[in-house]
């Protein structure tokens, strides 16, 4: 069955849809946790410590986090590899362009590929900045997200990279969520409006929610 799925364009799109939904669910939880930054240093730093001990005593310290990371890595890799292979196939399937060109599809639809690449690069920077602290401006402190967030968004480039990536994320989700529903066969004429509305609401909430954090730092609400 795995072979059938991976070898088929329809199957590979299913892989993209499922991995996309997994990442989307993570983002909702991630945003929810991040917004605690607006309730002050104590609340979000305590939350970070709680996350590290989540599932205890069943789970060992950090195990839940590592489990989540493992699932996310599999999802990101599956999503990216499928996207790359399908894109290569799509480009080969249309080798010669039309002489008479017309603007096609919506902006969100046309930017899925490059938007995805931008998001992939963003994830690398984001992890090096706020998980490992490798490229973090100022002294990185583990389990002190409040201080780390303030450091990152006190630099101009931190704000620019983050806000551009979040706009790309919104566009990606706008087309991606609705598309995933079609790929998984759950779309229908009666549900179409609801699905499109959900895609737009999710895109808007996640983009606005995440962008509110650098804006909070810039305006001094978080400092």
């Amino acid at each position: 069955m795995a072979r059938t799925v991976w070898d088929s364009t329809v199957g590979k799109k299913t892989v993209m849809a499922v991995s996309g939904v997994i990442m989307l669910l993570y983002l909702v939880v991630h945003l929810y946790g991040n917004l605690k930054v607006f309730f002050g240093l104590q609340e979000i730093d305590d939350y970070a410590v709680w996350l590290r001990n989540l599932g205890q005593p069943f789970m060992h310290h950090m195990w839940t986090i590592w489990l989540t990371r493992a699932v996310l890595v599999v999802a990101v890799v599956a999503h990216a590899v499928s996207a790359y292979q399908l894109s290569r196939r799509d480009i080969e399937a249309r080798p010669s362009k039309y002489v008479h060109k017309k603007p096609r599809a919506t902006y969100a639809t046309r930017t899925m590929r490059w938007g995805g690449v931008i998001l992939g690069l963003f994830i690398v920077w984001h992890i090096l900045d706020l998980t490992t602290g490798t490229v973090h401006p100022g002294g990185f402190q583990d389990a002190h997200p409040y201080e780390n967030i303030v450091d990152t968004f006190s630099t101009w480039y931190g704000n620019v990279i983050y806000i551009v990536a979040m706009l790309a994320l919104g566009l990606h989700i706008r087309h991606g969520f609705w598309s995933a529903a079609q790929t998984l066969g759950v779309g229908s004429r009666t549900r179409d409006r609801a699905l499109k509305a959900t895609a737009n609401v999710l895109a808007l909430l996640l983009t606005a929610g995440f962008i509110s954090i650098p804006v909070g730092v810039m305006t001094g609400l978080v400092s």
Partner: peptide
């Protein structure tokens, strides 16, 4: 679907 893929058609991006 397998034949469609074998013919070298692209995949759907729901444009």
């Amino acid at each position: 679907v397998a034949q469609m893929d074998a013919e070298g058609f692209g995949g759907c991006t729901l444009t």
